[in-house]
Design a protein around this nucleic acid. Structure first.
Lengths: 245, 245
DNA sequence: TGGGTTATTGATCAAATCGTGAATTTGGCG
DNA sequence: CGCCAAATTCACGATTTGATCAATAACCCA
């Protein structure tokens, strides 16, 4: 189980906290020690992201990650302290960006609609940034999404820090829905969000069932097919649920 | 990672395959060795079910399960061969029952509606058996459901055997939907099912986010609130998606 | 009542795992 | 160049984990 592994010394005697800089734009082939370091950190996170997304945090050992990133295990500890540190770093690396994009998309729509938002537009604005990245964000984002799906349906949302990243966009979503459906009760909007979230989550999770069920007629990662249908689905659902009395 | 642990001997030299009987009605306090055995097996599965549902299969050790069930670790191997055996047994114990109940519920509705099913009735019939058990099935069923949610959003659907248990009810569901919406395209119905499944799954997963988001106005396991809303949600969604051209 | 079978325990193994500290490389800089 | 710090590797210890084997306890039936 998640037993807190006992460390030999009583107090943290780590050599030195590395300067933990944001490992951004690591793809750029810059030279220099710092750049190189950031690149390997990114390689480690890529490996962890992929492995975690497949087997979950406990299904992956630090060695697995190190092997795949082609570095020594000690290096992972050097950069991220321990396994939980890696896990959290994996989540944090993208959480802020996607949430910001969502909020921006909602804000843009709120402006564009001229104070008169409708459910369809709101749902579309909320969902689109994710699907855009699922289609064009590269393998990495898909791994990240699958990991989120895994974490979302369990109770191991990374440390609790990550949770907040997603919440702000959701609050903006609810806010706009309240404008579009002024007569709807608040709890119904929250339940509506819950259903959106569930359907969306399953869409980018690693779950192939639909391929077998439909005998190949639907492919699980055919996001071009999913997005418009999910938008229609959620729009109709929200309208129905918002009309409850 | 899920490394296949190497066993010492080349060929299975297990003492003897235990008579693996269905561990049903283990709650009844019957006497006799067999009954006692079945009761401990059930205790083991209960413990495993709960722990797995919280931490996933790799987050739980055989010792954890043995401790919680208050038996020796060797006993788990005696009854279920190995860890995967326990996991599979946990799933199989309830998978057949819930799927049968779903199929029965759909069949009953198909009869009652006199050949003229409507989306609302179908969805209701499909969802109700689960919610009924979530409310009255005891802690055990809720653990099972949370475990399913965890497995459903990853790729570790037990061995592949369990998958089929759920498929038959789904096929019946689609079949009825085809009757209710003869003009709908088949793929759209499958996508519709996918969205139902996602929203439902999140409902019984271990995920509290909605409580924080709604500042306590919604409680994550308030199934009496969820069921009617989910029915309306899915009904509207299916209708919308089935009207696609 | 006693022998035989089944269920259960106790002790232990080999592999795997996380983590650590000492060495070694690498790159920047005076 | 030659030093210094950061980045990275190497070797290793303590613990956990899945699994096995022999020994005991519980039950049943002859």
């Amino acid at each position: 189980m998640p037993k807190p592994r006992r460390t030999t010394d009583t107090r943290s005697s780590r050599r030195k906290p590395p300067p933990r800089r944001a490992a951004a734009d690591a793809t750029t082939a810059a030279s220099g020690k710092a750049a190189r370091s950031r690149r390997t950190q990114a390689r480690i996170l890529d490996a962890a992201e992929e492995l975690f997304s497949h087997h979950g945090i406990y299904g992956v050992s630090i060695r697995d990650i190190a092997d795949r990133a082609d570095v020594d295990t000690a290096l992972l500890h050097y950069h991220f302290s321990n396994k939980d540190g890696i896990y959290e770093a994996v989540l944090l690396r993208r959480a802020g960006e996607i949430n910001a994009a969502r909020t921006r998309s909602l804000d843009d729509y709120a402006l564009a609609c001229g104070g008169k938002p409708d459910v369809d537009g709101i749902v579309r604005a909320y969902l689109h940034p994710v699907f855009e990245r699922l289609r064009n964000g590269g393998r990495g984002f898909n791994n990240f999404a699958a990991l989120i799906a895994l974490a979302n349906n369990s109770e191991l949302w990374g440390g609790g820090t990550v949770k907040e990243y997603f919440d702000s966009a959701v609050q903006r979503l609810i806010e706009l829905l309240r404008l579009a459906l002024p007569k709807a009760r608040e709890v119904d909007l929250y339940w509506g969000y819950q259903f959106i979230s569930g359907a969306l989550t399953l869409s980018y999770s690693r779950n192939d069932r639909i391929e077998g069920l439909s005998r190949g007629r639907c492919r699980a990662n055919d996001y071009a097919a999913i997005e418009p249908r999910l938008v229609e689905w959620c729009t109709a659902g929200i309208r129905a649920i918002g009309a409850r009395r």
